[in-house]
Design a protein around this nucleic acid. Structure first.
Length: 280
DNA sequence: CGCTACCTGGGT
DNA sequence: ACCCAGGTAGCG
């Protein structure tokens, strides 16, 4: 449920409503949800820290932490909290008195009687905490490709990133080390908009096709973000972006361009939806 | 590089 | 009763 637009929406909401607030307690309900440090150390580390901000880093959420004024831990190295929603994870901000859903993995209690909760019916979502350097190292964040939503992500960057990639285009686009931000839905929608066959070799695109693909990716991601994603935000309000617009999960429906039935195939373990007629 | 495991609830 | 899932690590 969480591709770049959905994660970005949550980062915005966190900046607006959670940044500046101290974490007064944290509870790890599913120990598997904490990558590191061990759950008891994780809760100890976070308790008493103030959430200083929030940003999206590829599909990760990254919350820099600051010492809470008056807690007396001045001089400690800075810390950050990382959260990855994986397929079905969601974050919710609720009054602490709200019953904890059985699919809740972690809760962070904030001052003022509210709680941030990580909920995931699949249980894949993960979090980690520590000094920024350690997080970057252990989560391999430095190897991520340029972010497709970043202002300076231009067609030239896309061309450089695809250059010499031997893999199949769709799979290469999903590789966050090549380009960060695209998920299965947005990759399919982008390839349809650019009228490019997902089965092409990543290195076979002409400059003109790269321009089209670049414009399509930007359009899909920016529109998804403008509509505040497909899923619920931090306050439970549903985003206005469609689950699938042109091809995603629309196999059998007529292509909006040529009327051919949208096809669905399996690529690299992922469902891939495309028009076999006009995506060349 | 491609495949599988990781899990559970929601959709069909 | 089945599948199946918008992601990723880790394996061969």
């Amino acid at each position: 449920m969480a591709e770049a637009p959905e994660v970005e929406v949550l980062a915005q909401d966190l900046r607006a409503c959670v940044a500046g607030r101290p974490i007064t307690a944290a509870a790890v309900i599913d120990p598997a949800a904490v990558r590191f440090p061990p759950p008891d150390a994780y809760t100890r580390l976070l308790t008493g820290c103030t959430i200083a901000g929030a940003r999206r880093w590829a599909k990760h959420l990254w919350l820099p932490l600051a010492d809470t004024p008056g807690e007396g831990s001045a001089g400690e190295p800075p810390l950050a909290l990382e959260i990855h929603l994986m397929l079905f994870g969601t974050l919710v901000l609720l009054p602490s008195t709200t019953a904890i859903a059985p699919t809740t993995l972690i809760t962070w209690t904030l001052d003022g009687g509210e709680e941030l909760r990580l909920v995931d019916r699949l249980g894949y979502a993960r979090s980690a905490a520590g000094p920024p350097g350690e997080l970057i190292e252990r989560l391999d964040l430095a190897t991520l490709g340029p972010d497709a939503l970043a202002p300076d992500f231009g067609p030239q960057t896309l061309r450089e990133r695809l250059q010499g990639r031997r893999g199949v285009l769709k799979s290469v686009l999903l590789n966050q080390r090549v380009v960060a931000g695209l998920g299965n839905r947005d990759a399919d929608e982008s390839l349809w908009l650019a009228a490019i066959d997902p089965r092409r070799s990543a290195s076979s695109l002409s400059d003109e096709e790269i321009q089209r693909l670049h414009a399509a990716m930007r359009g899909v991601l920016q529109e998804g973000l403008a509509l505040r994603g497909t899923q619920r935000d931090l306050f439970g309000r549903k985003g206005g972006a469609p689950h699938g617009r042109y091809v995603f999960e629309r196999s059998g429906s007529p292509c909006a361009r040529c009327g051919t039935r949208i096809a669905a195939i399996r690529m690299g373990g992922r469902n891939t939806h495309f028009c076999p007629q006009c995506q060349k």
